[in-house]
Amino acid sequence: MPKPELKLVGVETQTSAVSLKGFQAWFGETCVVQDMTLELPANGVTCIVGPSGSGKSTLLRGLNRINEDISGYAMKGQVLIQDSCAKDGFKDITELRAKVGMVFQRPCVFPCSIKDNVLFGVKNKRLSKLERAALVEESLKSAALWKEVAHRLDSPASTLSLGQQQRLCIARTLAVKPDILLLDEPTASVDPTSARALETLIKNLKDDYTIIMVTHDIRQTRRIADNVLFLCDGQVIEMGSTDHMFSKTAKPKTKTYLSEEFCDC
C-alpha cells in the first residue's frame, strides 16, 4: 500500500528543491530507507535528525547518487531534483553532482594548494587566470575563509586547521555553483568554536542555497534549522518546521528524541 505523501506541517507550500517518490535504499538484502515520499522546500536549512543507523546518510547520499559505487547498494523509487529526475533528468551524473554539492563529516582537502583545492571541481577550461582568481576569492568569501587565507592561497591546504579545512571543503563545493548543498554532520569533527563558525556560515548560505544537513546535535538543529526531518529505522517519523517539531508536535517519539531523552524507537 503506497504511503500518503508527507507534507511539511506548519509550513506554507513552497517550491520544492528535492522530492522523493517511493524512495527506498537497500544494502544487499536489508532495506535501510523504507518507501519515502516527501518534499523538501527550496532554500533554508532542513536538518535530518535521528538515531545512529537510522538511514540519514543513506538518504542524503541517495540525492547525489554517490552511494551507487558501493557494491550491494540498490535504490528504488524516484528522486526529483528541482523537478528533474536524478536518474535520467540530467545530461549525466556529473551534472547532477555539480547541481547538488556535498560536504562530508571529516574535512577532506586534497594534497595541493588552497587555491587548487577551491578550483578542484571547476571544469571550465576557458576561464582566464583573472576569472579563476575571482572565482577563488568569491568562493572563499562565501565560505567565510577569505580573510584567513587571502595571503597564502598557494600554501598546502593541509596546513589549515580542521575547522578551516571544513570551510575550504564548503568553498570548493560552492565554486562549482550548486543549488543544493548536502552536509553530512559537517560540524561533527571540529572543535566547538569552529562548529559555531560553521553554523553561522550555514545560516548565511541558506538564502542562496537549499541546505540539507544531517546532524546529531539537537541544540544545533534548534539554532539553525528551518525544517526538521526526523528519521527512525529508515522511516520518516515526522517532518515539519522547527517551531512545530520542537514545541507543537503531538508525536511522543519526536518529543522524546528532540528533548534529548533516551529514545528507543
Binding site: 547525489n64 553532482r97 571544469k123
Partner: peptide, 25 residues
Amino acid sequence: PNIYRESALALGLTRAEMVRKVILP
C-alpha cells in the same frame, strides 16, 4: 582513503578525471 574519491566525485568529476586528479598524483 575512499573519502578522497568520494569528495572528487561529489564535485562532479567523472571517474576518469578523478583517477587523473586524485589517484595518479
